[in-house]
Structures are given as C-alpha cells and as structure tokens.
C-alpha cells in the first residue's frame, strides 16, 4: 500500500529546507503539532503523519501483531522516511514516539540525523531501582478507561471511518474528534506503549539529541527525564516550565523556542 496514504502523510513548509519529522504520541494524531508547525514552516520541510491505528491513517493496514511492539511503529517511521527519501532528518517524537524514534534510528541510521524527545519515557512501570511512575495495575486501569469511552467513540467516529459523502454535516457534528481512534487499535497502542521497556536502547543513540521535559508531568516525571538525559550520550536536557504531558500544547512558545534553537545548532 502507498505509505503516504497509509500514514496520512502531510508535508508542509520550505521544500528546500532540512526535513523535520513530527511524530505524535499515544492518544492523539498529527493534530497535536498544530502550534508547533507555524514555528518551523519558514525554514524547514515539515513532515507530519499518523501512525497506523491512529488519526486518519488507513485502518485496514492495522495488524495487531505488527503494532504490538514499538518496532512495528518504528517501521512506519522508516517507511515514511523512505517514501519521501529523507536523509538525516530531524525526528521530533512526543512521549512514546521519542522511543519509537530511537528504535527507528537503530533500523535506518541514514534516515535520522537528530532526535528531539518531547516528554519521553523509556519505561512507565516501576522496576528495581527505577521509578517510571506507574504500576502494572495502573496500566490495566488505563486500558479500562479506554474501554469505558468506547461508546462515545463509536458514535463519533463511525461515520468518519466508513466515509459518508452523502452526509457532510456529520463531519461538523463530530466532537472530541481530533484524536479519535478505533478503541481496539488504541488498546494495542496503549499496551505497547505502557508496557514497553526501551531503557537499553537509549545508550546506543549516536546522533545529537534534545530531551524536553515538563516541570509537572504525571506521565513522565522529572526523574525519568533525568534518566533519559543521563543515558543518551551527549544529550541536551531542557526543562520547560509547563504542566502536563503536552508542552507543545500547554507551553507552545517555550517548546518551539527550544526545538528551533536545537535545530538551528545543527546547521
């Protein structure tokens, strides 16, 4: 299948500029970058996409087997890079996507030349001597939360998935629709995300890396940000004065400034 269509790839910005790939995390889609894109379009060729199983990616391309490990999502990244023939692109990954970027870098080092990790966590579940912030039970509870919001999803999302050209008014009725995802696919992504352990992969990152963390982030606490910074050789850590897990939405100016400073330093 055509990867550009499969992953709902969008390319905007300066076609002559260096490529920057913006990769969304669990829970949403490329809409998450709406406040970031304006800061990049003048100087960069900005590539946005949805992982299969999220947003408007082709639902029929979903395979539970492939997307039950981060490498399945990393293959999406590599295939998007190949489809656009990107080389040494800067990969900006939010949350679990930061780790997906690390895996993709291992698969195709020639495609990715720099990493920006926005609120990354290589492991969410606590382990001996490591505090990720969650227990396995917590993760089960998240999966249950996804399940309880199923009904709301199906009513909102069904017409969009099925395509309903006869009733365009349905598109306007959709609420909460930016990040609507098929609940079965979301459950796979959630399990893959929150049960992953990529701590060992961080050591082998050999490209310039920026780690962005928030002062108050329930999902990726500051200890985790410090761990990632400590483990990725030569990485830069920037702590944003922001609350929550999505600084690119809650503190866009500071986030954009940190990203553009880092990117400018690469040139």
């Amino acid at each position: 299948m055509d990867v550009v269509r499969r992953n709902n790839v969008t390319v905007v910005g300066n076609p002559e500029g260096p490529a920057v790939v913006l990769a969304h995390g669990f829970g949403c889609d490329q809409n998450m970058w709406r406040l970031t894109v304006p800061a990049l379009v003048e100087d960069y060729r900005v590539v946005l996409f949805d992982y299969v199983g999220s947003g408007r990616a082709e639902p029929s391309a979903f395979s539970e087997k492939r997307y039950s490990s981060l490498s399945g999502y990393a293959r999406d990244v590599v295939e998007v890079c190949e489809a656009l023939d990107l080389r040494d692109a800067a990969f900006v990954g939010h949350s679990v996507s930061a780790m997906i970027g690390v895996v993709a870098l291992g698969m195709a080092p020639e495609r990715i030349g720099a990493l920006v990790m926005v609120a990354p966590s290589p492991r969410y579940v606590d382990d001996d001597g490591y505090r990720g912030g969650f227990s396995a039970d917590d993760i089960d509870e998240l999966l249950a939360s996804l399940e309880s919001n199923y009904l709301g999803w199906s009513a909102a999302m069904a017409p969009m998935i099925m395509g309903n050209p006869d009733r365009p008014e349905l598109d306007q009725e959709l609420k909460n629709s930016f990040c609507a995802t098929d609940p079965d696919m979301a459950r796979v992504f959630a399990r893959t995300t929150f049960l992953s352990d990529s701590r060992d992969d961080l050591k082998s990152v050999a490209v310039p890396t920026l780690v962005l963390e928030c002062t108050q982030d329930v999902i990726a606490p500051r200890e985790v940000g410090a761990f990632v910074h400590r483990t990725v050789p030569g990485s830069t850590l920037v702590t944003l004065d922001a609350t929550g897990h999505c600084p690119h939405l809650s503190a866009p100016e500071a986030t954009n400034a940190a990203i553009t400073d880092f990117l400018a330093g690469l040139r």
Partner: peptide, 12 residues
C-alpha cells in the same frame, strides 16, 4: 491513576 493517564493523553 488510569483516569490520570487518560486525562493526560486524551482529555487535556
């Protein structure tokens, strides 16, 4: 806790 995760990844 599950609600927190949902809040941070979807709601917020």
């Amino acid at each position: 806790v599950g609600g927190k995760l949902y809040h941070e990844t979807h709601f917020a």
